[in-house]
């Protein structure tokens, strides 16, 4: 997985884990069920509208709140290929890498991208191409080992591949 392309779903600052996946659905670890309720309390049509490859764009402190890994899991299981935000909350950031959900911090991109824009993202260079607006933004790419974890599909698979 070197690059992805998809349509954006844009949200504001402090998108918390309770709106990403409300606690009332945490009585399961089934990823399809979690995906069915992803972003439900902030965007009730998200599960219906999301298409494979789509990209979520958020503001500051994306993923704040709970440590529930179900949050990045539900996003990934929805088919979302990448999340771009100005900043990420610490636990969400770590969880995303651990489960193999690509994420980028890029304030410039967040300010300029509009809902529905078509983007392509090159993971290796961190270049975000806004196809709809013919603009380009640059995020800091992941170091190689983090990229390795994401490519393996998450930390556990990465560790397994290495032993």
């Amino acid at each position: 997985m070197i690059s992805v392309q998809g349509r954006t779903h844009k949200y504001g600052d402090n998108v918390d884990t309770d709106v990403i996946i409300p606690a009332r659905y945490l009585n399961t670890t089934d990823i399809k069920e979690l995906a069915a309720h992803c972003m439900e309390d902030i965007d009730s049509d998200f599960a219906k509208n999301v298409r494979r490859g789509d990209i979520i764009v958020g503001g500051e402190n994306f993923g704040c709140g709970s440590s529930r890994e179900h949050a990045p899991i539900s996003i990934k299981a929805s088919g979302v290929s990448c999340v771009i935000a100005k900043t990420f909350a610490r636990i969400f950031y770590r969880n995303s890498i651990n489960i193999g959900l690509p994420i980028f911090e890029c304030p410039e991109a967040v300010d300029k991208i509009q809902k529905g824009d078509e983007l392509s993202i090159d993971f290796k260079s961190g270049v975000i191409q806004n196809i709809s607006r013919d603009e380009q933004y640059k995020a800091r790419p992941f170091p190689e080992f983090i990229q390795g974890i994401i490519n393996a599909g998450g930390l556990m698979s990465y560790l397994k591949e290495r032993v």
Partner: peptide
């Protein structure tokens, strides 16, 4: 694997929340 794991810092421990994979 609970974000409020930071509670035990009141007792002088370094404690922090992480996700289930960690």
């Amino acid at each position: 694997a609970d974000s409020h794991t930071c509670t035990y810092g009141a007792l002088g421990a370094f404690s922090t929340g992480m996700g289930s994979t960690d």
